[in-house]
Structures are given as C-alpha cells and as structure tokens.
Nucleic acid binder design. Structure first.
Lengths: 343, 343
DNA sequence: CTGAAAGCGCTAACAC
DNA sequence: GTGTTAGCGCTTTCAG
C-alpha cells in the first residue's frame, strides 16, 4: 500500500515486480493451485508493495461473472422503499455481504424504465444474482429474473406462486399467535383488518387469523380488507365498527393500520383495550409510543435480510438451500390489557 | 426485444445485422456524430430487433469510466443505516438515478474491511462517484474519497471541514426556528439537549439555539449534551432537570431524544406542555403519535437525497455546482401548546 | 462521414 | 508447476 493510490496497478506490473508470469500472479490472486510456495510469496509481496487491487470490470468481463448482487424492490409506489422495514433488511444484507467480495446494487424497479434496467443489468452479467422483495400479484419482476437465468432469492413469498428460493417471516404463525392472544384475553367477538390480499403476507396473516379462531371455535367472519396503510386502517376500522358493532378484539395485519384504527376508536369514544383489544403486526418503532402502546407481532427483519444474502451466496456457490421461514413472536403491550390487569 | 433474452447480444452482431462496421454501430449507440441518417436508422432497427443491451463491464473497462455511483454510509455503528432517515435519502437518490443510466451501489463503510473495499471500488473505477453520509469527527472515509480522485458529494457537513460539494439541511436555521417558537410561546427559561458535538448537525443545531436566545436576550446556558439516541435523551433530560429545575422549555436536537425526554418528564410528573414545552428535530414518523404529539423541525429528507444525486451528476458532467442548503420548517403540535390554547 | 486496428485488465485453455 | 495464447465486449485513436 505504499505507492500510487490513484493509479490503477495492473496484474502485469505485479507479475513483473514479482518476477513471474502473469498467469502465475493471477493464480495467486485467485488462490488457485499449481503455484510454488516461493512464487506465491513473491507475488503476495509484490501485491502489497504495489497496492494492487484487481479491476472488477475486467475480471467480470473475462470470467463472465460479476461480483455484484442486486437487491430489487418492486412496487408501483416508489416510496415503498422508504419503509423502515427495508432499511432494516438492507442492514442485514449488507452485514453479510461485507464479509464477502460482493457489492450490493440497489434497484427500485418501479417504473417500466427501472424494470428494463434491471433486466439489462442481469442480462449483461453485471450482477451475479438478485434478491427480490415486495411483490404483489403477478409481479413482472419475477418473470424477468427467471428469464435472466440468474439466481434469484425472494424475500417474502409472492401471493401467486412459490419460488424455488426464498426467506420469509412466519406470517401465518404470527397472525395465529396474535389472534390466539386475543382469545386468551377473553375476547370472543374477534375481527380482523387484513392487508392487501394480493400480497403473500396479507394472505398468510389472514389465514393465521382463521386458524386461531377455528381452533378456538369462534366466529371468523368479522373481516374487513385493508391495504396496510394508516389511512386504510382507519377506513377499515370504521367499516368494521359499522358492520360488526359488537367486536371486542381486532387483529390488524400491520401496525400502520393499527395506528389508524386506534385513532378511529378514540374518536368514537371506544376505549382500548377495555372495550376493544388490538393486536398489530410488524412491531414498528412507533408501536411502543402510541396510546396505549400496541401489542404486536415482532418480525426478525434484520435476520431476514441476513438470511436472504446467505441463501443467495449459497446458491451462487452451487448449493441448493431450502426455503427458510423465520419465526415471529408476540410482543405484549397495553393495547390488549396490561399484565397487572389481565382481562 | 424479440430474440434471445438470455444470451448476450454483442455490438458486432448488431453491426452485422445492420450491415455497418462496429465503429458505426458504436457511434450510434453512444449517439456520437459522424453517422449518416441511413446507417443510424439501420443500427437502431438492428438494436431493437436483436434486443441489444450494451455490456456495462466491457464499456467501463474500455472507457475507463463506470456507470455506477456509490452511496457510502459511515458510522462505527452498522445499525446506523437502519435509521429511517437513510431509507428516505435512498429513495430520493434512486428517484433521480432511475432517470439516468447510473446504477446505485450501497456500501456500509463500517468495518476496516468495508472501508478498504470502498477504496478498492473507487480506485478501480467501478464507480464514477460517491455520495458520502453521516460522518463524525475526522472520518477516514472523507480522506479515502479524496485520494481516490473521484467526485464526492457529501450529505450533511462534517464537523471538521467544509467539503467542496455538499447538500445539507438548514440545521442551524431549523434549530433557531424551534427555539424562537419556544420564545413565542412565552417561555423564558429555555434549555437544550444537544446532539453529538462531533457531528456537523449536532453543532449546527446547538448554534441555532444560541442564535435564537441571543436575539431574544435570554439566557442560553441551560445546556446538556446528548447523543441523538432515545436513552441518551432520557438521561440528558434527567440531568437538565437536576441542573436547571426552573426550565420551562427545551429544544431537543432530535425526536428520538425528545421521546426519551418526554418519558422522563412524565415519570417526574411534569406536564408537557403546561410545565415544560418541548420541540424536537427531524419529524420522524413517531413524532405524530407521542403523547402529546411532538412539535418538531421537518427536514426535506427525500429532496436531500435527490439533490445529492443531482449534484453528483452535475459534477460528473463537468460542472461545478455550489453547495446547497435545504430549508427546514417548524411543524407545530401539542408539545408546545395547542393552537386553541396558545400559552 | 467511415472502418481498421489496437487495446482496457483480466481469465482460461492449452501446451510445455 | 509454469508460461503462452487467445479472447471477454466495448471504446478510441487514426488513417482513409
């Protein structure tokens, strides 16, 4: 690391300095076999003397395989990536990638243009693999990735098909946990505000609600479909109150919606949790600060990102990892009754 | 886009199909001059027939300049990127980049390894430029970027030096606004909980507090230094209460700290805003949902990202844009008194 | 305006 | 074990 921090140092220079052929140098760099200890050492010295750094572009071009992987987020809404959820996922991914020689490219495949570019990046082998998140319905991205003939790992399961490789949180189990908790609290007229039914998570959470009530032998028809957003949650709660005024507990498929619902309940003079108990999903940071604080299902978001990255790495290495479902857990707070006052 | 979605289509193939030389084809692709209309059209047809997509690696190698730009986040804490703030910035950046042919690489220059890799990426011209965020003290990253001899745009101003190109929010002005609001509300014993003083934002917000009180002719010595975190805010508020029990208004340099402070105040039986009025900074999403909701300074976060990207693009294009300071504004909520009950 | 030729820095057969 | 030889797909002089 002594000389020239600005200029490119080439392999040839290293080879010359070390007094070996370029192939030998190359072999050392990629620690391939068939190099004598002496040469190996010489090359290594030259590398550190010169501060050699391989040129990733040349390497990718020659070997037809890139070092970068891409994280693509698909959504008709460009703001989707502003969701703190993704920030966490990215942290998880980066923490794994940082240990390897893979760079992370971020692509918001929002517009047609964005999608085209993703296809282009994949097709020209600028990226070795893709992690795909947040697709609803039959997302064109999925197809695009398949065509590109590049390893794809999904974060979350699309609503319409089960990918070969994916990591997901146990949405169904979590929803079941949430609903069971409501049952445990003594609620008997339990409704739900679902997420979008064209997303895997929305569907799974709805199923979990049904599971729990089936087991408890309770009616599972107090259902309003929402869209995961705060305002959507408010609207849905109004509908729910109208359609089923007797509801005494609600499982809400996202904390954002739960916050909207909370507002509506307050405005209607309905007390949480005394009159109606609430459970959300996601454990966003705001959930701790609402009044009352929100009981919710916590997801291991950063691990989700980590495992996505690990899985992609595994596929890249020629393995065939199995899909992974990460556990979710109940985080009790006051919106379902305090511990000192269990209903 | 008819044939072969999987295979690389090369420029030569396009040239052959169009019945022109490779150079001609290349010129058309890069819409350079010196090509007859006829040839141009032929090439364009061939391109779309074949679904040609230039290979970015080859291009970068040959031209010695990459298409990708990197967003590097520096922090001793890998979780820093989990901050929703960054997610917003990234959205802003992406929205601009999506219109261009630049890819976005994300690098968390957390570990020494991460920093080394960043240097490597820059040095081997895998990236055309860098956007750097969140540095405190004399961040090694800044130096690294300079050495690499690649355009660098800073997001926020480091505490120790003023970079050539940067975009920042008007932290000082915002802090002043916040403090002035406290004055307007009739508070006279106004304290502050600052952020980290080795970050530009922490410093600037403290100065803004001083500015406002100097103008108002009020005492500006009720100062406790915090660290931007929720727990840090709680600790700081305890200290402040001990050191200056007479305080009746506090400007707190981040909403996270303000939330911690709010908790301490509540526990101490001090009513907000009646006894003590509070103003935070950032307008994080939780600020709307605390009890009482938090008056705070809103920053244009997404625009910040957008402008960073635009500035980098400008530099890349050979321009010399001036640094940019984005305005901040006061968002009034109940923590400084309701509008129906202005103190 | 146009095309030929010479690389960019590296990998990968292939002979030795 | 080792070095030589071709390229990877593109840009870029440089003559025509």
């Amino acid at each position: 690391m002594t000389e020239s921090l600005r200029r490119q140092v080439t392999l040839d220079e290293v080879a010359e300095r070390a007094g070996v052929s370029r192939s030998a140098a190359s072999r050392v760099i990629n620690n391939a076999p068939h190099v004598s200890r002496a040469k190996r050492a010489a090359v290594e010295r030259a590398v550190s003397d010169l501060g050699y750094v391989p040129n990733a572009n040349a390497r990718a071009l020659a070997s037809q395989q890139a070092g970068a992987v891409v994280l693509a987020i698909s959504s008709e809404n460009p703001r989707a990536f502003a969701d703190p959820f993704f920030a966490e996922v990215v942290v998880g991914i980066s923490s794994v990638l940082e240990e390897t020689d893979h760079e992370l490219m971020l692509m918001m495949a929002t517009s047609a243009r964005g999608q085209a570019r993703l296809g282009q990046v994949l097709r020209t082998r600028q990226a070795a693999g893709v992690m795909l998140m947040s697709m609803h319905g039959d997302d064109p991205l999925a197809r695009l990735a398949e065509q590109a003939d590049v390893p794809v790992v999904f974060g979350g399961v699309p609503a319409t098909f089960e990918p070969r490789y994916y990591v997901d949180a146990d949405n169904r189990g979590g929803a079941r946990l949430a609903t069971e908790h409501l049952v445990t609290c003594g609620r008997t007229r339990i409704g739900t505000i679902t997420g979008r039914m064209d997303e895997g998570a929305g569907l799974a959470r709805y199923r979990g609600y049904q599971d729990a009530l089936a087991v408890a032998g309770l009616d599972a028809t107090r259902v309003i479909h929402g869209d995961f957003s705060e305002d959507g949650g408010a609207d849905a709660m109004r509908e729910l109150l109208t359609a089923h005024p007797d509801v005494d507990g609600v499982f809400i498929a996202s904390d954002q919606m739960a916050i909207g619902a909370l507002r509506v309940l307050q405005e209607a003079g309905i007390t949480v949790p005394t009159d109606v108990a609430l459970v959300g999903f996601n454990d966003i940071s705001t959930a701790r600060h609402t009044t009352p604080p929100l009981t919710t299902i916590s997801q291991p978001i950063q691990p989700l990102g980590r495992e996505m990255a690990r899985m992609l790495l595994a596929v890249l290495a020629g393995e065939r990892p199995s899909p992974l479902i990460l556990p979710t857990r109940l985080t009790k707070r006051e919106s379902t009754g305090t511990s000192t006052n269990p209903t």
